[in-house]
Amino acid sequence: MTLKIGIARETAPGERRVAVTPETCRKLVAAGAEVHVERGSGAGAHFPDLAYEEAGAVLADGAAAAVADADAVLCVQPPAAAGIAALKEGAVLVGILQPQLDEARGAAIAQRGVVAFPLERLPRTTRAQAMDVLSSQAGMAGYKAVLIAAVLAPRFFPMLTTAAGTIRPSKVLVIGAGVAGLQAIATARRLGAQVEGFDVRPETREQIESLGGRFLDLGVSAAGEGGYARQLTDEERAEQQRRLGEHLRSVDVVVCTAAVPGRPAPRIVTAEMAAGMKPGSVIVDLAAETGGNCELTRRGETVEHAGVVVAGPLDLASQGAQHASEMYARNVLNFVQLLLKDGALAFDWDDELLARTVWPERPAAAG
């Protein structure tokens, strides 16, 4: 029996990405799957229906037709609870699902017996890198954040020598040296800015410096065991905040990227610290969706406080929907290939990538 894979058009506000591109559709078809794609699914990322048809997809009129009786449904954002309830019983659902954040969604998954693979739960191991949607999408977010900062800043980023005199380069500080932060550092450097990077993990110094940035050392180390940051004491945190506040007075642009998966974003830049920055300074907060790293951040808004502009953009990866979709779709394809054997679904629960990603969690085998 042919494996049916369904892709419905994304309906979340601002979402332009798609979970399957014509490139990955062709590979799924070559693996023996029948791929049904709702018409217009790739339009937001500029993948026309004709490209899917040429890749071997069956075009469906409407979401219900695309996912009806599908053995596996691939998505970017999770379907609504009603959409999940309409899936085939026992169907596989793969995407950024976050079932624990929506009680109705989680209940629908459980009640329908859906085998859900929330890709944000994927273990961060070397083998999983080719499937790591959080990293691939964070790269686009970091890139776009710097471009937003460059538009909002009333300054050039690079140093310029002109007939009207020399323009000094903008000084950019990137807080957080994860994938988004490192991409932001690299992008700001390409634009010619003087770039610094700050992270509580001192081992990120080498990564920041390899991209041409300067590691901002505030004299407080959060180095812990196994490469993880430890919790700072109240005294250490207060000293870190004091030194950061003083340093921000000389910074033109701050890009905040610090995030903790499944938890609200850590507050790093207080209102007082932001108000102490030079008039015309800019803060772009990638963590706006989970509360923001800056106390002044307003989700989805750009505000001004004491002459400092604070932007809390949403859906940054979707702003680069074409390349973001290409990366995301390849991540999904690599994961789905773990589920396929001879063109059919097969679950190897001894594979830690499957066992640790599936939701609800499966009890460990006895013995």
Rank of each mutant, 00 (worst) to 15 (best):
L97Y: 05
P279L: 08
Q183T: 08
L3A: 12
I96N: 09
P13I: 05
T166Q: 13
A193S: 07
A110M: 11
G113H: 05
D315V: 12
G197Y: 08
V254G: 10
N334Y: 12
P118E: 00
C294I: 09
H247D: 04
A64R: 12
A329K: 03
V251S: 06
A153V: 13
F157C: 03
E15D: 08
G219A: 07
L211V: 07
K4F: 15
G227T: 11
A31Q: 04
P154W: 03
E196P: 13
D252K: 12
R237F: 14
T162F: 06
M1W: 13
R299N: 12
P279K: 08
H305Y: 15
I208C: 11
G6A: 06
G14L: 05
V115T: 07
L182R: 00
D71Q: 08
F47K: 00
A141L: 04
E38V: 01
E53S: 14
A145F: 03
K27F: 11
Q240H: 10
E120M: 02
G219E: 05
M277S: 04
V310Q: 07
F335S: 00
M140R: 12
A82K: 10
D350Y: 14
A43E: 13
G276I: 02
S325L: 04
A8R: 12
P158F: 09
Y328G: 03
L232K: 10
I96E: 08
I167M: 14
A344E: 14
L338I: 06
F47C: 00
P266C: 10
A184T: 00
R112H: 04
L160M: 12
L339R: 02
I7E: 10
Q137A: 11
L339M: 03
V37L: 05
G113I: 03
A317L: 00
Q322H: 15
V58C: 12
A51I: 01
A60Y: 04
L101H: 15
N334Q: 05
K88D: 01
G367I: 03
A275Q: 13
G227F: 07
L182E: 02
A104N: 10
R242W: 12
V195R: 01
D252Y: 15
V310L: 09
P279I: 09
M131A: 00
N293D: 07
Y52K: 01
D315G: 14
S221F: 10
L74P: 04
A324F: 06
R230N: 08
G197C: 08
A19S: 14
V94Y: 01
Y52W: 04
G44D: 06
R190I: 04
V195C: 06
I109Q: 06
V179P: 01
R267C: 12
D71A: 11
T166D: 14
L50I: 15
V58Y: 14
G276F: 08
